[in-house]
Simulated assay, not measured.
Amino acid sequence: MFQMRLCLLVLFITQPIFSQSITPEEVMGAWKVNAVSIAQNTDALPEKVRELKKVFEGAIFNFQGNGVFEIELQNKSSQIASIFKEFTGTNWILKNNSIHIGYEADIYSYMRIQIEKGAKTLFKLPMIQLEVTKTKDAKPKKFKKLKSKYPKTRVLNSLKKPVFKTKEFDEGTVIPYSEVQTPPVIGDCEITADIEEMKKCTSQKVSRFLNRKFNTEIANDINFSGTAVTKIRFIIDVDGSVYNISATSTQPEFAEEGKRVIGLLPNFTPGQHNGKPVAVSYVLPMTFKVVE
């Protein structure tokens, strides 16, 4: 059965890596990735690690003096790359020797990078670490506060209540996502003859939505560390609305938060089977990785 996979990677900084604080002026400028290596003791999905390594090979991180962040990727074709490209044109701040990337309204939660300086400079992210070299300096300027590209940020969406609709479906009327002839799509994803492209587009949209809306501070609240696996199930009805959201997880708090975020999803364009709209069952596995 086809299952859309999302690996939500959460990095929480509990203490500085080294005692001497790094300054924003040291960070400002362009940094080129020279080498990518897998972090020790990672138990993430191997294919995700390989994809992540490929995405960051030769990448350039640009921390502008006015607080604007840009990233240039050499490998742009993967789903993960499309997510990281969204970070270009956001803000960056330095806090506790960690670079926080995003918007103020989203509490700079898009990405966090630990910096380790020694014989080599390392940018440490979940699952991987990047050996980087500074190729260009930048001078401090007045901070340019940017507004989110998205009309509804995580903070604003905390005011919106999720919708949990339930419905009894007759036996045989719900088609698994892997078997439906025309899968449901979301947002600006188009219905085309390329079924795999439709699935890829919807996967990317839902992944970005979850990454923006999921309250990652839950892990801090419950003092969680390690890895948690969560599986969310729901049905996309013939009108495109989401019904019967359920979730299981090795960490119950993540299951509840996953259900909340899915309850915020906008309507899909419904799937079709034999030329008619049908209800489609959807399974969404997620892996949460928290590194201390």
Rank of each mutant, 00 (worst) to 15 (best):
K141P: 01
V229W: 10
E57Y: 07
N91Y: 03
E57C: 03
T42M: 02
K117A: 07
M286R: 07
F18Q: 14
S37G: 03
V174T: 04
P270H: 11
E168N: 12
V132C: 04
F56K: 08
N223S: 14
F12L: 13
I113N: 09
S241C: 01
K152V: 03
I17K: 14
G67K: 01
M1E: 08
V55S: 02
G263H: 00
T269G: 02
E197N: 11
I115A: 08
V27F: 09
F63W: 13
F84W: 06
K124P: 04
G226D: 06
N91L: 06
K161I: 09
S78G: 09
A105I: 02
E47F: 10
P162K: 06
L94A: 06
N220F: 15
Y103H: 05
L284E: 09
T250P: 11
T42I: 00
F63Q: 11
S158V: 08
F61A: 01
K289M: 10
M1G: 05
K149E: 03
G58R: 12
E217W: 05
R112Y: 04
T227L: 12
K48S: 08
P285E: 05
T42V: 05
S77R: 15
E217G: 08
T90E: 06
I191V: 14
Q181E: 15
F169G: 03
S148E: 06
K205I: 12
A35D: 12
K120Q: 14
V49Y: 11
V174S: 09
R260S: 08
L125E: 05
S225Y: 14
T216H: 12
E257I: 03
T192D: 10
K145S: 12
E190C: 00
E171K: 15
A193W: 10
N244G: 00
R154P: 01
A30T: 09
V33D: 06
S82F: 04
